[in-house]
């Protein structure tokens, strides 16, 4: 019996281990090895940190990374600010059938591929697009307005793409908050603001943190949205990695960039967790 359950445990563990090893650990080790190679001649390589040094000595690379990180943090904050009231409404006010319908409405855009969704935004925001025409029709603009290819367009795209990943953990944690706890908050003299600050937000903190981590990572690693909505000036770090790999055919530098992205984004998440005094264990429940 004992050995039977043990065998079952290992059998269940195997796919996970294979998945981790084959798809995550081994490629990353390989990437890391590639990033440590310095090309000294044709087909001649030496092991060194030169590629990493390039990242730190070239201001454009660092600025692009900082810009990407700041934009991603901003996108995360904006997503949280929009998703929180939506989730609170779905979980605590609408409830039942209406709540389910609203939840599905949040989900529906994700039935369509990200590419198509992003093109949808292009149709809305381009010079001859809906918003531009609407503004002209309303007399607010006397000529076509180009709203694509700027940071605001990237931000709209990022927030829109990330919304669901914030709403799902928030709705889940908010639904687990007992109504009577909220009522007790009011009963003991709290108003809407203090109940939100002292009861609802602390309770939702794990959901806020896990949602924020996911949204931040998705934004940071997003390639499609910044490239399409931001145009050629978007200066997104993933674009830079792409360019190194595909355009410049400099795999060594691309791999180093990839690793920097992994390390720096992990550091940012760790720093945010420290700053908000949350631990990963709490967040993952």
């Amino acid at each position: 019996m004992q050995s039977g359950t043990r065998l079952g445990f290992y059998l269940l563990l195997t796919p996970l281990v294979l998945w981790l090893a084959l798809l995550i650990v081994i490629p990353h080790i390989d990437m890391f090895l590639v990033s440590l190679r310095e090309r000294v001649g044709v087909r001649q390589y030496e092991t060194s940190f030169a590629n990493y040094l390039t990242f730190f000595t070239e201001p454009l690379y660092i600025w692009t990374f900082v810009r990407t990180a700041v934009m991603s943090v901003l996108a995360t904050i904006i997503t949280l600010l929009i998703a929180f009231p939506v989730s609170l409404y779905i979980a605590k006010i609408a409830r039942g059938r209406l709540g389910q319908v609203l939840f599905v409405l949040c989900l529906i855009p994700f039935y369509v591929s990200e590419l198509v969704r992003t093109f949808g935004w292009m149709i809305l925001l381009r010079e001859t697009g809906l918003v531009s025409n609407l503004l002209q029709w309303a007399g607010l603009a006397d000529q076509p307005v180009e709203m694509l290819y700027n940071d605001a367009a990237i931000m709209i795209g990022l927030v829109y793409t990330s919304m669901l990943f914030m709403v799902v953990p928030l709705v889940t944690t908010l639904e687990s908050l007992d109504d009577s706890v909220i009522e007790a908050g009011y009963d003991l003299g709290g108003n809407g603001f203090s109940v939100l600050r002292e009861i609802i937000i602390p309770h939702a903190a794990p959901g806020i943190v896990s949602g924020s981590i996911v949204v931040f990572m998705l934004s940071l690693g997003n390639y499609l949205t910044p490239t399409i909505l931001g145009g050629k000036d978007s200066l997104w770090f993933t674009e830079m990695i792409y360019n190194q790999f595909i355009v410049r055919f400099n795999w060594e530098l691309g791999a180093a960039f990839g690793f920097m992205l992994l390390i720096l984004s992990s550091l940012i998440v760790w720093g945010m967790l420290k700053l908000t005094r949350q631990s990963l264990e709490e967040t993952m429940g």
Binding site: D178, S180, V181, E183, A184, G185, E198, H203, A205
Partner: peptide, 11 residues
């Protein structure tokens, strides 16, 4: 009010 399941604030 003392609630049925007490509703102490777990946070």
């Amino acid at each position: 009010m003392v609630f049925q399941h007490l509703a102490l604030f777990p946070m």
